[in-house]
Nucleic acid binder design. Structure first.
Length: 97
DNA sequence: GTGTTGACATTCC
DNA sequence: CGGAATGCCAACA
């Protein structure tokens, strides 16, 4: 199972932290991989589907991008569109994992 | 085949 | 609560 495949496995309306994605990929403890791979891999459906990279957040329930960056805003919007409520900059992992 | 690169997690102050 | 230090391995040139 590749990283991006694990990301594809995240159901709509839910989120996963990097550690969970790494675990699903069979790589526990390799959370950095996830970020690296997400940055390098298809954001544009090159594997036949769009990779929901925006459903992947860090263990603190926050977006990994710098607040105020365009990617941050885009991810936050996409998550809201999936009914993932964010309190301030925090997402309720407890309710969405 | 080798080396570099990270969108992090976890633990320990 | 937060900051620092460490480990991790796939993707890419």
């Amino acid at each position: 199972m590749k990283i991006w495949q694990a990301v594809l496995a995240i159901p709509t309306g839910k989120v996963a932290c990097y550690g969970q994605v790494a675990d699903l990929s069979g790589l526990p403890g390799s959370a950095r991989l996830v970020g690296k791979v997400l940055a390098a891999l298809p954001i544009n459906g090159q594997y036949g589907q769009t990779v929901p990279w925006y459903r992947v957040i860090n263990a603190q329930g926050r977006i990994s991008f710098a607040a105020g960056s365009e990617n941050f805003a885009r991810q936050r919007d996409l998550l809201q569109a999936e009914q993932v409520l964010a309190i301030g900059a925090r997402i309720k992992l407890k309710d969405f994992q």
